[in-house]
């Protein structure tokens, strides 16, 4: 065997740097398209089928284009119980939003401004609540709720949803408050404010958009949550629980309409607050 220089077989001539750049560009764009398709194709199919007549939904071949028939939507909206479920969902989500901000924002503020023993553990615990599987909690929770009379109420469900949304509320508001220089507050104190006045006059106006974003995020978490809602409510079902209960025995076009009703508000909300969510995850988006 000869150990002939391998290099001789390789065409070793300088290539423009642009070549490597172009190849990278291709991979980059392909990855973006793939990721977008991953999200957008199911959404597209959902919307197309919602806006098609029942015959088209079940028929074959499919055109892939919506016929803008509102039949499914109309049928879905007149379906008995949908209105009530929508109202329940809204009520629970609003309660969750209010609770998680009222509890989460002060926690976020404390984390950003004060040094106290156990601060790191507290931050970890806040995130850990998300790691606890809800199905494990469901039965004891249901029993406890029945005993206290919280079962099947919007308030009870909102409390559970608040637990789910709280870590995000704490972490988002923590990063919001941490982004505001302490000197602004101190300047306000030297200019005649007490702690509360400084917060209201200086800090609140600066964090308000972010607080609204984190509130909307809590709203979305509650809106989308299905497991606790199914376990803890019977009469006062939220839309998700209602759909899970009823849709698997419903015709296909109705499932699509129900899916759209679930997805649409969440999509709109998340889109509205995307800037703050990006900021929370540390991605600059300017």
């Amino acid at each position: 065997m000869s150990s002939a220089p391998v290099a001789a077989n390789i065409e070793d001539r300088p290539r423009p740097v642009g070549d490597a750049g172009r190849a990278g560009q291709f991979v980059f764009v392909a990855a973006i398209i793939l990721l977008c398709a991953w999200i957008l194709v199911p959404l597209y199919l959902l919307f197309v089928n919602t806006l098609s007549s029942p015959a088209e939904v079940t028929g074959f071949p499919k055109s892939g284009l919506p016929s803008f028939s509102m039949g499914s939507v109309q049928f879905f909206l007149s379906f008995s119980g949908v209105g009530q479920a929508l109202w329940n969902s809204l009520l629970v989500a609003v309660l969750t939003m209010v609770f998680s901000i009222l509890l989460g924002a002060p926690a976020g503020y404390a984390l950003s401004r004060f040094e106290f023993p156990g601060k790191e553990i507290f931050r970890l615990l806040v995130v850990m609540t998300r790691a606890f599987p809800l199905p494990l909690l469901a039965l004891p929770l249901a029993v406890m709720f029945i005993r206290t009379g919280l079962d099947d109420t919007a308030l009870g469900l909102a409390l559970v949803h608040t637990v789910l949304a709280l870590p995000f509320a704490v972490l988002i508001t923590f990063s919001l408050f941490a982004g505001i220089p302490v000197e602004l507050e101190e300047a306000a104190w030297t200019l005649g404010c007490n702690r509360l006045q400084a917060f209201i006059k200086v800090i609140l106006p600066l964090v308000l958009p972010g607080i609204v974003a984190s509130a909307v995020f809590a709203f979305t978490i509650s809106w989308n949550e299905v497991f606790a809602a199914s376990v803890l409510t019977i009469e006062n079902r939220t839309l998700t629980a209602f759909l899970v209960q009823n849709l698997n025995v419903s015709p296909l076009h109705l499932k699509f309409a129900g899916g759209t009703a679930l997805v649409l508000p969440a999509l709109i909300f998340i889109f509205a607050v995307r800037k703050y969510l990006f900021a929370m995850w540390g991605i600059a988006n300017r």
Partner: peptide, 12 residues
């Protein structure tokens, strides 16, 4: 009254 190193002018 105090003047801070980073000015602390209220941005809003």
């Amino acid at each position: 009254s105090m003047v801070f190193q980073n000015y602390a002018v209220f941005p809003h």
